[in-house]
């Protein structure tokens, strides 16, 4: 059986990204391996739950800039993270200075919002209901 164990996003600064994804968002640091040229194999995971990891990948490849600029210009998130209570996270994260490009919107079975991860990406937060 093939399973998803890693997803990746490009980040413009790995140290800043690690701080945002752990201290601010609350994910857990997992792997941090030097890969040369100052680049790291840097992953975060769900708190207290081994399994799928998010790779915070260096954005040095020349194609990354235009690719991300086009997505961010149209407000398109790089990926989606789940939350239990979107309104509570909106309040908590706003208090921590996180910019919401899209405030919480309720669509019945799902409520979504979009934040700026400060390292070049928009990230959608989703609360699945029922």
């Amino acid at each position: 059986m093939i399973r998803i164990h890693l997803a990746s996003i490009f980040v413009s600064d790995q140290s800043k990204a690690l701080d945002f994804y752990t201290r601010v968002l609350g994910l857990e640091a997992r792997q941090d391996i030097a890969m040369g040229d100052g680049n790291r194999w840097l992953t975060v995971g769900n708190p207290g739950a081994p399994g799928v990891e998010l790779l915070l990948e260096p954005a040095g490849h020349p194609a990354v800039g235009p690719f991300r600029d086009a997505l961010v210009s149209d407000g398109i998130p790089a990926t989606q993270l789940a939350v239990d209570d979107l309104d509570a996270e909106h309040e908590r994260l706003t208090g921590l200075g996180v910019a919401f490009v899209q405030p919480p919107m309720d669509f019945g079975p799902v409520a979504v919002a979009v934040i700026d991860d400060t390292v070049g990406n928009l990230i959608q937060l989703a609360q699945m209901k029922g």
Partner: peptide, 16 residues
């Protein structure tokens, strides 16, 4: 609301 991205408009068209 004011100041909506293309993504937000597309999402609201479908959701609302």
């Amino acid at each position: 609301r004011d100041d909506q991205s293309l993504f937000e408009i597309t999402t609201r068209l479908l959701g609302d």
